[in-house]
């Protein structure tokens, strides 16, 4: 059973998939989340305190202008989802 999904405050581990490849420097702006990029997309993953924090995060993404593909809550014990083509984001 997925314990995270039953938390009434929505706290838990989230994966947010964005269209477009964000530079690694943005990781500093999304403290606590890991930023993984692949072919034309970006995956932000990490713990989110509650629904308010999640909505705040989505607002920040909206303000950058990156199209949102999906938002998914995952159990911390789940296998973290990995993009098909991980890449190391070459230093700019």
């Amino acid at each position: 059973m997925n314990t995270a999904a039953t938390d009434p405050d929505g706290s838990g581990f989230y994966e947010i998939l964005l269209q477009g490849r964000l530079d690694a420097r943005w990781a500093a702006c999304f403290e606590g989340l890991t930023l993984t990029t692949g072919d034309g997309f970006t995956l932000l993953a990490g713990p989110v305190t509650d629904q308010a924090a999640l909505h705040g995060l989505l607002h920040r993404l909206r303000d950058i202008g990156l199209p949102l593909v999906s938002v998914r809550q995952v159990g911390t014990d789940d296998e973290p989802r990995t993009p098909h083509h991980t890449d190391s984001t070459p230093g700019a």
């Binding site: 420097r25 500093a28 303000d63 202008g65």
Partner: peptide
Amino acid sequence: HHLFADVLRAHLLEERP
């Protein structure tokens, strides 16, 4: 412009946190 300010801040945070 809000958008550029966001990107500039990301650069700032990365280069001179």
